[in-house]
Design a protein around this nucleic acid. Sequence first.
DNA 1: CGCCCCCTTGATGAGATTCAACTCCAGTGG
DNA 2: CCACTGGAGTTGAATCTCATCAAGGGGGCG
Lengths: 248, 248
Amino acid sequence: MFVESAINPGRAVPSPFAVQPDSLHALFSKLPAENLSAGKILFLEGDAATSVFEVLEGSLRIFRILGDGRRVITGFLNAGDILGLSFRSHYIYTAEAITPVTVRRLSRKVFEAEVANSAELRPVVFNQMSDEMAAAQDQMVLLSTKNAEERLCSFLLKELQRALKAGAVQPLVHLAMTRLDIADYLGLTIETVSRTMTKLSSKGVISTSGRHSVKVLKRGLLAQLAGDGDECEDGWRPAVAHGERLRH
Amino acid sequence: MFVESAINPGRAVPSPFAVQPDSLHALFSKLPAENLSAGKILFLEGDAATSVFEVLEGSLRIFRILGDGRRVITGFLNAGDILGLSFRSHYIYTAEAITPVTVRRLSRKVFEAEVANSAELRPVVFNQMSDEMAAAQDQMVLLSTKNAEERLCSFLLKELQRALKAGAVQPLVHLAMTRLDIADYLGLTIETVSRTMTKLSSKGVISTSGRHSVKVLKRGLLAQLAGDGDECEDGWRPAVAHGERLRH
DNA sequence: CGCCCCCTTGATGAGATTCAACTCCAGTGG
DNA sequence: CCACTGGAGTTGAATCTCATCAAGGGGGCG
């Protein structure tokens, strides 16, 4: 059950269900499902954060809009994900449906009361928040240091892992979002995303069919091109430049 | 006490003490202080996450090292900050002293037990984690969309706000970290940071004296150059492209 | 005082953005 | 059934910002 707790592996996995899959899920199970059609807003940045959501079906993008109209997508959500934990009084980003979406809504008050009353639930919520934090850190690493190809490969690799974890047998990724979404998520332009996709296709790493379907032909190479293949894996430690460990 | 909860303002503030300043602090108050000299490591990425820390004095950098040796600084910590909340079983980054540092160490087990037993403490811990998440999101926005000047101005502005909040009367910022630290934090090179500093000086926005002292001469212009001056402030809302709100 | 490291400044080049044209596809209505 | 239309994606050429490579200052500490 705690296989996800080894050195790094669970970090990039956005699913909240790596541990104790059911206890959070159960909170929502008796609530009515709500439907959003594609393009509809679930909540806006700046709104009072009154609800926590569970995504039952479909995909959403979460983003912030800057003063000059630029959009930064900070994440995508899919079936099984929980949305709305890491907020104080107001939502710090907008959540919008990419595809038709089904969610369950739990009032924040009830949610907090349930968490307060359940010693089982607390570590699950805590782990969920820690995973979100870890994913944000990964994204910061991607945005600070990776070039266009590395970013796109990282993205495709993560989507592939998600698909496989969700039960896919073929290395086939369905990208619900548009190229512009991917660009805004990776800190690139739509043209650069498109060009890089083309380059990966011509290298034989992937093959695209239609706008939303990508088959991964060379997973190893994809991982290598993603740039963090050997990052701190299996016991590797950064060289300590001029410091010793703190005795304690 | 809840002034920090208005639309956005508290978001970028890393201090955990915006609300209920003392309850977290109190947890650590009876513990012995530990000292680290500059350059010493408090903990390494990948270490078992056994402790939570309170910084009493000094500054630290938290970072990850990539396979090829590149370093990504994901944050800086100062007196009053809490370190080590957002972890699962292992630390996901390294924490290293920039200046001589004094910390108090609380075992994770004890910390979790205390939190479990105190209904007062839980929302404080929760808010602290939410603030960390918000700061991470801000950093993602900075790294995705801002150019070198905007990044540096954002950074200086944040440091200025921290200094003022800490009781500074003059608009004087002390940068404990090196240019390389700033570069690794902002996703730039040391040369670009240096050039941009020079440019801001010659524009009369700031004036530097020595390597670590920066006086902010034109705070308004600095905020404007930071690029998010009018981002969603006072009720501004992003135009909803093709969506309506979900009725609920 | 002198050395070393940190920082600054300059010249060049690579990679991504920008601007622009064109293709492809889905949906619509005649 | 097919032409029309508009959004999404692709491709090309020019531009620009920032990284890289290289050399020179300056401050702090022995």
